[in-house]
Design a protein around this nucleic acid. Structure first.
Lengths: 211, 211
DNA sequence: GACAAGATAGCACGATTGTCCTATCTATAG
DNA sequence: CTATAGATAGGACAATCGTGCTATCTTGTC
């Protein structure tokens, strides 16, 4: 094979199209992180990129799919910017701390101009129904599960109090990350993430094994 | 004076109009808590209430003002459902716990169908600009300030460790409330607020004075 | 009761929305 | 090279948006 396109369905993708597709998703993520996935607009996206409405529409064939692909793309960014760096650290407490640090750094660096994309869609779709809500719910379940897993591992390594409820403690670590993201964005002050860092450390400090 | 209308600007308000006005805001809060203040629509509200678009529009004269008044109305609900019950308890640690309990109860009871309205608009407008963003920012500053104040009072009463940074600790109490709200709504499981309750208690437990 | 003013309906407007249909261009497989 | 199919533009569509204008009803003041 001379190119590495996915080539699913027996149809060939053209490289120029693939590139435009990526550019659209990039702009869509930027816009949606600020104004929400719901107020994404095909016409707006087209104007932003200097192409025609049809040029955008043809890539997704419905607004629904545009939203779904945008969410999916954002999840990949999250994976690359938070999960991957976090997974560098050895399993257990170190990785738990590493994940929290990676999240706060990702907020601080302004990877998305409107703060954490997944926090944005969490609030936007938590009370709605449909595929986006379901995707958000499952994504957040995975994220919580990942934290929970590391808590259990840390308990096995005697790095954390074995009496802790893993899910509960994962929740307690996650909470300050989320709020730090919202407040840093709200007040346009990236240093607010320090509150999150301090909170995470405090939560961990009281969860160490009672020697 | 024979009626208690506000009567501002020298014009008299009619009671039927005032009632409709309130009904509109009520529906607007319900809708916006689910789908966001930004996707509030005058036509949609009109259909929902069985009145004409003009009938709704005339009450606000712009969409901007509809959004502002809806936010304001929601803040009043928040005051009535959270702040007022919370303020029953005596100042200090008791009031701090009372406020947290009141918030979680308000989430649990589903006062808004889409979860806490202020958490919704926080996420929606944190990265935007304009009067709504500013109102949200100042509202949340007030809420954090209120918690902070009670932390300081509690420290004065020797109910909490005087070494605590009040703002930081207020943040740490607020965080699990906020996340509990989002997750309870996302998973349609009001009992998730128990995670918030447990987290608040844990945070307080480690903040007691080191006798 | 009369009268002033608020409440509401109806209609029209330009703009924008999502979606479809039909051309024209261009990258690529053979 | 040619042939094919994807990429994109352009235009049209019905629906909905926010916002005005005008007319009719209803409430409250004198």
């Amino acid at each position: 094979m001379t190119n590495d396109n996915h080539d699913e369905g027996g149809s060939r993708r053209r490289s120029d199209g693939e590139q435009t597709h990526a550019q659209i998703l990039d702009a869509a993520m930027r816009l949606a992180s600020i104004e929400g996935l719901g107020s994404l607009t095909i016409g707006r996206l087209a104007r932003e990129l200097g192409v025609s409405k049809s040029g955008v529409f043809a890539h997704f064939r419905s607004k629904q799919r545009l939203q779904e692909e945008t969410l999916r793309a954002a999840e990949e960014v999250f994976q690359r910017e938070v999960l991957l760096p976090g997974l560098d650290a050895p399993e257990g407490l170190a990785r738990l701390e590493s994940l929290c640090k990676a999240y706060l750094s990702y907020v601080e660096r302004g990877v998305f101009p409107g703060g954490c994309f997944l926090a944005q869609v969490l609030a936007e779709f938590d009370a709605q129904t449909g595929p986006i809500h379901d995707a958000v719910a499952s994504g957040h379940k995975t994220w919580l599960g990942l934290m929970e897993e590391q808590v259990i591992t840390a308990q096995g390594l005697n790095e954390l109090d074995p009496a802790l409820d893993p899910r509960q403690f994962a929740f307690e670590l996650w909470a300050p990350l989320e709020l730090a993201n919202y407040l840093a964005t709200l007040h346009r002050d990236p240093t607010i993430t320090d509150w999150g860092r301090t909170a995470v450390q405090a939560a961990i400090a009281r969860a160490l094994p009672r020697t």
